[in-house]
């Protein structure tokens, strides 16, 4: 059914994403694309911090790296991460978008073009509008749009903007996101 999960988050999303990754089944059948803003001075150590608890490998991909199921691909610091036809990652150092590099919008827009109705997009807590338009594009292409319950978010700007822009499929708290992902079976 689905071919990929893409998750965007910013301020207040680190613990959520850690919980999600630690609850993933080790044989999760889809690739997980992660586009998370980070503080400018925290450029290294992020992937290691996520890896510690994750039950699937977390990778900062190289340019043109082939995307494989059961792995999480974290947009590297200071690069935009695009998804290209042929199931490949493409990195770019173009100007920041929404003051962000990586930009969640760019990752979501390009993933939506590639996976279309077979994409699950999830927007988590964040203090920036980045990601809201990207989630709309996921929905426009027939994909599934999920937003973390703003009640649970440390910062609601990202989820509120997303909910304003898109009629989403689900508003889930962290536990519900986890249960939803755990139910995804091999196609």
């Amino acid at each position: 059914m689905h071919k990929a999960v893409i998750i965007g988050g910013s301020a207040g999303s680190f613990q959520v994403i850690t919980r999600i990754l630690s609850a993933m089944p080790a044989n999760f059948p889809l690739p997980v694309l992660l586009c998370l803003h980070r503080l400018k001075h925290v450029r290294s150590g992020f992937v290691e911090a996520l890896s510690i608890k994750s039950s699937i490998p977390v990778i900062e991909p190289m340019d043109k790296e082939q995307i494989k199921p059961g792995r999480a691909y974290l947009a590297p610091a200071n690069y935009h991460m695009y998804i290209e036809l042929g199931n490949k990652i493409a990195l770019s150092t173009e100007e920041p978008v929404n003051h962000s590099r990586p930009s969640i919008d760019l990752s979501f827009i390009t993933a939506a073009q590639v996976y279309r109705e077979k994409l699950i997009g999830i927007i988590l807590s964040g203090a920036n509008r980045d990601g809201a338009y990207g989630l709309k594009r996921v929905k426009d292409h027939g994909g599934m749009a999920i937003v973390q319950d703003p009640e649970e978010c440390q910062v609601k700007t990202m989820t509120d903007t997303s909910l304003k822009m898109t009629k989403v499929d689900h508003i889930f708290n962290t536990n519900e996101i986890i249960r939803f992902l755990q139910k995804i079976k091999h196609p």
Binding site: Y82, E84, L85, A90, S92, E94, T110
Partner: peptide
């Protein structure tokens, strides 16, 4: 050139 970035530019 890589299509994706060229299209965007």
């Amino acid at each position: 050139y890589s299509d994706k970035s060229l299209k965007r530019r």
